[in-house]
Design a protein around this nucleic acid. Structure first.
Lengths: 198, 198
DNA sequence: TGCAAAGCTTGCACTCAGTGTCATGTTCTG
DNA sequence: CAGAACATGACACTGAGTGCAAGCTTTGCA
């Protein structure tokens, strides 16, 4: 279920190819010069497109690094909704989030990206913004598990649990980066969750 | 311990006065036109200073709204360290954070600010950034309470608890804003914490 | 009291991100 | 093949934020 299904329109295929090309170019430049020191003009001309076209593909410089967090969020949501109804909100959420650390993720690139986050405030900021989106995505399921009428009230409980779980995720990734990829991210995440729930 | 001690140099006093003046002007404009629709030029000329001077007082447009979150963080840290050593990390943190909701806070202004957050992404982003700073501020005390050697390891536990507590705080404020200030923020916070720790 | 250092204000010029518009070309659909 | 839909790039523009230098005021010290 990945890598460019052939039964796609030409436009769509080139679009994806160009997008990938921009991403590769940009990540290379970021790794070489740092995120902030790299301008959109540099990325565009290195990728052989115009500055304007860059912004047809990505809403912001940050978006290149973030990848498709929206799609990732949807995947996690699906994993969450697939967990048995008998599991508590915390259990189901934790397990769903662990699907992010699949074997298909490229650890080296991930580590490079994680390192960028640590010295580019605007990147961290956008990332946290995305988590706010995820919060809404996961809320219905978590509310169901808590037995709250969905979306009806301004009940903070579901959102609090989700936000806490996402915080654990971020902390785990951060600790993983600090260990230079040596530590096991899932273990770190479990440790974080355990500490929060103790 | 507030409002312009008189034994201060003239420069310092004027500096504070100007800063306050800019803040008032800016908040008024933000309330009238919205945060994003208000430009720094507008704020500067409405406050009777040059655009350049504005940036001598505030690092960014967002900073005007945020106030002195750094100082606030220090206050919370002090409150945290003043809690009895017998309290758990969660207990101490919760109580320390509740000092933010003192009787001296102007609910009307706070509500207006909270509303701005909800429709200005850059504002939310900067706010979350500040919380990252708070995390470092609170970490030593929390590590002590957990019995972790301070700062030595990449142990995620202290950071996770702090991040979770701050998430509860944000969620509580958000819910409070949604209730238009009707609900009790401390109750909302407690509900959030209870849900997370359940 | 007077003078030098330090600080404040401002204008100007600059970089960079991001957006709107429009003309030109390419691909898709029927 | 015609027309719709989309892609591209050029141009011009806004708005945030920074560096620099000139001219002023305050302050601290001799």
């Amino acid at each position: 279920m990945s890598s460019t299904p052939e039964n796609l329109t030409l436009r769509e295929r080139t679009r994806r190819a160009v997008r990938a090309e921009i991403t590769d170019t940009a990540l290379r430049l970021f790794a070489e010069q740092g995120f902030e020191a790299t301008t959109v003009d540099q990325i565009a001309s290195a990728a052989g497109i115009s500055r304007r076209s860059f912004f047809h593909y990505f809403g912001s410089k940050e978006d290149v690094v973030m990848g498709d967090l929206e799609a990732l969020g949807l995947r996690v949501r699906d994993a969450l909704e697939a967990r048995p109804a008998t599991e508590t909100a915390w259990e189901a959420l934790s397990e769903a989030l662990k699907t992010l650390s699949g074997p298909d993720t490229d650890a080296v690139t991930e580590l490079e990206i994680a390192r960028m986050y640590s010295d580019a405030p605007s990147l961290r900021a956008k990332h946290l913004e995305k988590h706010l989106r995820w919060q809404e995505l996961f809320a219905p399921d978590v509310e169901r598990r808590l037995g709250i009428a969905p979306g009806a009230t301004a009940d903070p409980r579901a959102r609090a649990i989700i936000a806490a779980a996402l915080a654990c995720l971020d902390i785990a990734v951060e600790a993983w980066r600090e260990s230079d990829g040596a530590a096991d991210p899932v273990e770190l995440f479990d440790a974080a969750v355990a500490a929060v729930r103790a």
